[in-house]
Amino acid sequence: MTVDSIQNGYVIDHIKAGKAMDIYKALNLGDLDCSVAILMNVPSSKMGKKDIIKIDKLIHLDFTALGYVDPGITVNTINNGNVSKKRAELPRELRNVLKCRNPRCITSIEQELPQVFKLTDPQKRIYRCIYCETRADQDGQ
């Protein structure tokens, strides 16, 4: 399978196998007007198998959302053929990435409030809504 090399854009690498679609959704990649390639179950010496996403355009990438979905991934930014690498980290705070599901939360009636979640347990990757402290589900919503 051949995917063209990129002059300007991103290669999101070291995604846990099977997680590529979560990132696709979290970053709303379906809304872009450029080529997006999703490679799944690619053999990897470190990970056994991994997913990769290639985006053929320099867009605003939400590293917070990336770090939340999968903190182990690497983002290669390609600018006029020059590559720079950055590793996503587990973000301390998520702003407008998740929506609180607690129907008793103030955000359920005041939709203009930012949806903010804080990392309360880095080991277990637990995020809680700053308003009502309800725990975010691991599936990202």
Binding site: R104, I106, T107, I130, Y131, C132
Partner: peptide, 26 residues
């Protein structure tokens, strides 16, 4: 306030101190 977190929102905008006198079951 019946909604959880309403006093926290109030404290983010209020020019005077806010005391939470109960926010739902929170």
């Amino acid at each position: 306030h019946p909604k959880e977190g309403a006093p926290l929102v109030a404290s983010m905008f209020s020019p005077v101190p806010i005391i939470n006198a109960g926010d739902g079951g929170h």
